[in-house]
Structure formats: structure tokens, C-alpha cells
Amino acid sequence: MSSDQLIAVATDALRGLVQAAVPPGTPVLVGPPSPEGEELSGLSVHLFRVGVLPLVRAVPTIGADGRRVRPELGLQLDYLISGLGGEALQELGLLGTALQALADAPVRERQSMAALLSQPDRLSAMAAGSVTVQWRMLDLPLDQVSGVWLASGMRQRAGVFVRAEAVWQVAPA
């Protein structure tokens, strides 16, 4: 079980969900927009924090059949979805569209996630079992918001902070 696979799948699924919601041809990039880059209309999905879900730090247990049950791998992945620096009102409209898409589909299971992925082979390469991602909007205090912008080196603009609670439970062997 590998956390890098879960991070990649959850990030790509978030990018795909936002990409499916915005008008065709609108770029949705993973990573922060380059401070020197061309300003264009679109959105970026920037992972800025990785944490472990508190409930999945448990030690392995023995199932009813006597087999060892592997613990879940659960991560908290915090993202900033922001504009790429295009026209301000258009950028705000794209953020509103992204927010609505996240509110309409806050939970994705393994079987419904594949359609969102730009690289579906990452999901199929994960061991059999369940994969669930639940997205939640974050309401960060102003000092934390400023800290994220400062640490990322991005020019501050409107943005949506999102937490993905990603859980991967490997099927018992």
C-alpha cells in the first residue's frame, strides 16, 4: 500500500472533476501557476498539505476468519484551487463553477473515479480494494490563507480551499 499512489489518484480526480465542470478548452493545471508564466483564463489545483487521517492510525487487526486485516491508508490532502491570472470576473466565474461541482459530488468511490482521471492506469495499478475520496470546503483563518499564498510563491488572488479525505482499504488476501 503506497501513499504516493493515493495522492496521485486523489489529485487527478479533483483535477478531473473541476475540468469536467468548466467550459471545454479551459485549462485546469495541477500545481501552482508560475509567477512568471503567461496569465490566462483557467484554474490551478495546488496540493499544499498532506496529513494522515486520525482514525486510520490503528494497528492491524485479526478478522473473524483469523486472517490479518490490513489497516486503511487514509490521508488528508489540502488543496488550493485558484485562477491562472486571467480576467478577474471570468476567473471568479470559473471558481464558482468548481465550487458547485464539488458541492454536487462530494464523494467519489473507486468505480466512479476512473472517468475523472487523466491517467486511469494509476487507479487500476492500485491493489484491489476500496478507494474513496470525499471533498470538503475549508474555511481557513486569514493568517493561514496568507501563509499558504506566501509559502507557495503565488500571486494572491481569489481561491477555494478544499480538503480531500482519501481512504484506501486493501482487500483481504
Rank of each mutant, 00 (worst) to 15 (best):
L73D: 04
V30P: 08
G37H: 07
Q76I: 00
G85I: 01
L75E: 03
G93K: 12
G31Q: 10
G74H: 03
D78H: 13
V30E: 11
I81E: 06
P23E: 05
P35K: 06
L94M: 07
G85L: 02
V18C: 10
L43S: 03
L17T: 14
P32E: 10
V18K: 12
A101H: 13
P27D: 02
G93N: 15
Q111H: 02
S34P: 02
A13D: 12
G83F: 09
V28E: 13
G74M: 03
E72P: 03
A115H: 05
A88M: 08
R108T: 10
L95M: 08
I62H: 05
L116D: 08
E72A: 15
L75Y: 07
A98N: 13
S82N: 09
R57Q: 15
A58W: 01
L53H: 09
V59K: 14
P24Y: 12
A98L: 10
E91P: 04
L92E: 15
D78M: 02
L116T: 05
A13N: 08
G51L: 09
L84D: 05
L102A: 07
A21L: 10
G63W: 03
G85Y: 07
E91Y: 09
G85P: 07
A13E: 07
I81P: 06
A115Y: 07
V28P: 04
T97R: 15
A115P: 03
E36N: 14
G83C: 04
L55F: 00
A115C: 04
V59P: 03
F48R: 09
G86C: 04
E39V: 05
G42K: 06
V107L: 15
F48P: 01
Q111K: 02
R57M: 14
L102D: 09
L29S: 01
L55V: 00
L47C: 01
H46M: 11
A13R: 06
V28W: 09
S44A: 15
T61W: 11
G63T: 00
V59H: 14
V69E: 13
R67G: 04
I81K: 06
P54W: 02
D78S: 14
L55G: 13
A21V: 06
E109R: 15
V28H: 13
D12C: 07
D78Q: 12
V59I: 00
E91A: 10
G86S: 13
P60H: 11
G96Y: 08
G51R: 11
A58G: 09
L77D: 01
P106S: 05
S82V: 00
V18D: 07
E109W: 15
A20C: 03
G25H: 14
P54H: 06
E38H: 13
P60G: 05
S112M: 09
S44K: 05
Y79N: 04
P24E: 12
R67A: 12
D78V: 01
L94R: 08
F48L: 04
G86E: 06
L92M: 14
L95W: 12
S34T: 07
R110N: 05
D104S: 15
P35V: 00
R49C: 02
F48N: 07
G74A: 01
P106E: 01
P32W: 00
E91G: 03
E72W: 08
L84N: 09
P60S: 10
R70Y: 08
